[in-house]
Design a protein around this nucleic acid. Structure first.
Lengths: 109, 109
DNA sequence: TCCATACGCAAGTATTTGCTTGCAAATATA
DNA sequence: TATATTTGCAAGCAAATACTTGCGTATGGA
């Protein structure tokens, strides 16, 4: 479970995306995080290691605990990459927005 | 090389991101795409298969060629996911955050 | 028709992932 | 001090991933 370590690879795993969501909401120690999953503590710990190594979380010791905290600046890279293709989905979203707006107006009537 | 097939996984691979960049710029057939890489045509073809299966490209026959075209609406999902953490990288120079960061450093002692 | 081109399919391989279990170290609490 | 908690390290494993090579099949042009 070594080798590649970029943000795209890091967020490719659903479990890691969940972890990110959790620590973004509130910093937590490893056991607390692991309780949310069916996999072993070690497995979660490895995911955390990967997230840490590519800079998406920071871990600081607090007694015998390791508190994991979100540090998602790196996601800007993903945002940047996706953004350049915005034209490919933007029109569709606009259309959806218009549609939802029209529903809204109908509601108010 | 089967099994998982979501957008996050699809864009995790650097080669696939390159391919996306190429077909987004201009639709191309498989051999033309493969020439840009050091890997075999088959390898590129497999990447294209994955991209196709998760809907990021569409392939249409044109004589004996298969022309690949970008269809990146699915990237909206990634955009959406990343967007929710925008706060984590956007206000880097915010005075409050700098202050909180300094408190953090104290914590680590 | 004959041949080159563009491509898919399938078998085989090395490496990476994602996970487990067992055990040891460090810290907190009784 | 004895014990429980939180965690890391390491070996081991099945499956997925990223490739390769060889061969067969259309399609297009000479």
């Amino acid at each position: 479970m070594e080798a590649r370590r970029d943000v795209f690879q890091a967020i490719a795993d659903p479990t890691r995306r969940e972890i990110i969501g959790m620590v973004a909401k509130e910093p937590q120690n490893i056991n607390a995080l692991a309780e949310n999953f069916d996999i072993s503590r070690q497995a979660v710990s490895l995911h955390l290691k990967i997230l840490n190594e590519c800079g998406l979380i920071i871990v600081h010791k607090k007694g015998r605990e390791r508190v994991c905290e979100a540090k998602l600046d790196q996601l800007a890279e993903v945002n940047q990459w996706v953004k350049q293709y915005k034209q490919f989905w933007e029109q569709k979203l606009d259309a959806l927005e218009v549609y939802l707006d029209s529903l809204h107006k109908d509601d108010k009537k």
